[in-house]
Design a protein around this nucleic acid. Sequence first.
DNA 1: AGGTATGTAACAGTTGGAGATACATAATCG
DNA 2: CGATTATGTATCTCCAACTGTTACATACCT
Lengths: 145, 145
Amino acid sequence: MNRDTRLSDVLHVLLHMGQAKGLLTSDVLARSMGTNPAVFRRTMAGLREAGLVRSERGHGGGWQLARHLSEITLLDVYEALGRPSLFAIGNRSAHAKCLVEKNVNAVMVDTMAEAATFFATRFREITLDQIAPRDPAFASVHAHR
Amino acid sequence: MNRDTRLSDVLHVLLHMGQAKGLLTSDVLARSMGTNPAVFRRTMAGLREAGLVRSERGHGGGWQLARHLSEITLLDVYEALGRPSLFAIGNRSAHAKCLVEKNVNAVMVDTMAEAATFFATRFREITLDQIAPRDPAFASVHAHR
DNA sequence: AGGTATGTAACAGTTGGAGATACATAATCG
DNA sequence: CGATTATGTATCTCCAACTGTTACATACCT
């Protein structure tokens, strides 16, 4: 199963945006993310709706943060992405008739719910400025791979 | 993203095996699991190697537990399955050169490692007899879906 | 008007894993 | 011993979800 890298990708890009002075285009940011502009915009749409970033159209347009890095938590970003599923494991059928299967499902669901709570708690504690490198020289936007 | 249901599936089947008196065939157990015998055997191979179950070939053959339900933890089963990956999220590249990306990766890896520890701890606490229904009448093997 | 950038719908390509098939091996029964 | 029944496993097919790609509309600046 291929992992969903959108959260990681978006955090990466947001930190670059936090270091930039002006607007950065989808083209530049998509390269930094290792994808193409259309995928980038699709991915960032939720963040714009959530008010984490702003985008400007037309000539001279691009993207910028709508809040300071210290005012954005990982949980904000995760939720703006639409709370993508965290786990690669799960139950085959949600509503089993078999009592044995019901019990197994309950254990799995409970455990995953607790783990999800752990993620949410941890994500809420971390603001983006805590992840940013101290030396801004290392934070310049550039393409990867 | 499709979730890996093998852990849930296998727990379900193990509980049925714990209730059964004799051997149960791959055919019967696969139906209970909602799949076919070949997939079932492929899935159970690790559990046999780990010594959690035994299988007998030929006429009258089938599967049985090698230990009592109270002596099998969820962690035992999870490890016997080859420790399938727990998370649907992750980083795009494991070894980034960009310092920003490195920091993001580190946060993700740390958080996931802690969550994985939580899963392992919880799985170690739970033995299969704790999941089994009290009334064995409900535990008879039968096909689902 | 022309150039540049975002917004988004629609289509194509990829891929990982489940399902399916085939056949070898092994054990029991008559 | 041959027939039957069951597991062991390699290999192929199939499918669905998601990424990537393309196309085009919209908007803004010069």
